[in-house]
Amino acid sequence: MPVLFFLIWLLLAGEMTLRTCLWGVAVSALLSWACRKFLGHRRRPWRGLGEIGACVSYLWYLLREILKAGFVVMRLIYTKGAQVEPKLIWFDTTLRSDRARTVLADSITLTAGTITVTAEDGRFCVHALDASLAEGIEHCEFQRRLEKLEA
C-alpha cells in the first residue's frame, strides 16, 4: 500500500529530486497509516507469486470481457433499440469473503449490459439489459476464477 502511494506521488510530481522523494515518503506513510486506522484497511496474508499470476490473468480476462461486452451492447442499441427485454435477477453467490464479493460486483458492473443493483450478504441483484445477457449469470466465469483465487 505505501509503495503504491509513493509510485502515484512520483507520477504526479513528475520529477525525481531528493526533495520530492522525501516528501513522497512522508505523505505515503501518513496516508497508509490513515487507511489502516480510519478506513479499516487490512493487509492480506502473502501467498506467494502464484497469486499475482492469477490476479494478472483475472485482470486480463476482465479487460477482454469489458471490450467484448461493449461491442455486444452497441450492437443491441443499433439493432434492437427499444425492444430490449430488461431483466432483474436475484441470485446467491458462492463466494464467501467480502473482498471477492466486491470484486465480483465491480466486474459485473464494469462489463456493460449488466449492473449490480444491490449486493448484501451474498445475495446479488443484477439488472441485465437483455434476457440473452442474463443467462447463466450466477455461474459466470468471473465467479469461477474468483473462487480459485479465494481458495
Binding site: G70, M74, P86, L110, A112, I115
Partner: peptide
C-alpha cells in the same frame, strides 16, 4: 436502468 447500460458503454469502452 436500460439507459444506464448505454452510459456504461461510454464509461468503459
Amino acid at each position: 436502468l436500460d439507459r444506464m447500460h448505454a452510459a456504461a458503454v461510454g464509461d468503459a469502452l
